[in-house]
């Protein structure tokens, strides 16, 4: 890699903390622009304040969480009708507003060609409401935001299968439901207790790596020398694989995870 290429890669890694910090997109049609915005909202599992800054310096700011659009925040972008601009009042949106919100987004993207995204944590509870991205897309006749959950499920299955000879307990944590994939009662109980404490700590708004971890990342915890095995938590769009591995090098575990993301 050239020195310039190495510098660009280093800059990209600096920018990768948090959801799409410094992310940008260009679009040819208003509908493409809305699709780009919905893709970013669909990645926000933890509550995030998203500011889409367009090429003319104007902003569209919203709250997203639970992979839904929660609020459109003031000030409203310029050029909207008074009725549409009234949506940008910071109140919690509801599913019945999918069509007017979709029309507002398309009115905004119709005036622009590119945006840069800045994201920051927010404490709003996403369980309070909001509009799913699929409802907004449907209101405009768009395909739903990219849904690679099925492929990711296959990748997780393959990851777990490859680890299985060395697994000493594995859980799949999906929202409030926990599925036991591997392990004795004692192993599962120990893993559950650990995961509950750890996830509460790591998904707190103040933890710097929370967004990149819950979106798509793996953490491997290695005990002090002389202690057997390692534990891992792999996050994907708010779902988590929690496992204990024995008799395998942590580097090998990470290589297996990377194989599924190649």
């Amino acid at each position: 890699m050239s020195a310039l290429g190495a510098l660009k890669a280093a800059l990209a890694r600096v920018a990768s903390d948090g959801l799409s910090a410094g992310d940008s997109a260009g679009f040819l049609t208003p509908a493409d622009g809305v699709a780009c915005i919905l893709d970013r909202i669909d990645l926000a599992v933890l509550p995030r304040k998203l500011r889409f800054r367009f090429e003319d310096g104007s902003d569209l700011t919203c709250l997203a969480g639970g992979r839904r659009l929660l609020q459109l925040l003031p000030p409203a972008p310029e050029g909207l009708s008074p009725q549409t601009a009234a949506l940008f009042d910071g109140r919690m949106l509801g599913p019945a507003e999918a069509e007017p919100v979709a029309n507002a987004l398309i009115a905004v993207t119709g005036q622009h060609e590119t945006f840069r995204l800045r994201a920051e944590p927010d404490a709003t509870d996403p369980a309070m409401g909001g509009i799913g991205t699929e409802a907004i897309a449907a209101a405009l006749g768009l395909a739903p935001a990219d849904d690679d959950d099925a492929d990711e499920g296959d990748a997780i299955d393959a990851f777990v299968a490859a680890l299985t000879p060395n697994l000493r307990g594995a859980l799949w944590v999906d929202d409030q439901e926990i599925e036991v994939l591997n392990g004795s009662d004692a192993e599962v109980e120990a893993l559950s207790d650990w995961a509950a404490v750890l996830l509460e700590r790591l998904l707190a708004p103040g933890f710097p790596l929370a967004a990149s971890f819950e979106t798509d990342g793996i953490l491997v915890f290695i005990p002090p020398a002389g202690t057997e095995g390692h534990a891992l938590v792999a996050g994907r769009l708010g779902q988590f694989l929690v496992a204990k591995v024995e008799g395998a090098d942590p580097a090998a575990t990470l290589a297996l995870w990377q194989d599924g993301h190649g």
């Binding site: 990209a12 890694r13 990768s16 120990a190 893993l191 650990w194 404490v197 750890l198 790596l209 990149s212 971890f213 798509d216 990342g217 793996i218 953490l219 491997v220 915890f221 290695i222 005990p223 002090p224 020398a225 202690t227 534990a231 204990k244 942590p250 990470l254 995870w257 990377q258 993301h261």
Partner: peptide, 19 residues
């Protein structure tokens, strides 16, 4: 408490697609 057995982990490795 970060380690599985209750003791602190000695090392933690965090990997994403970008870094």
């Amino acid at each position: 408490g970060s380690g599985l057995g209750g003791e602190p982990a000695a090392e933690v490795l965090f990997l994403t697609e970008t870094g």
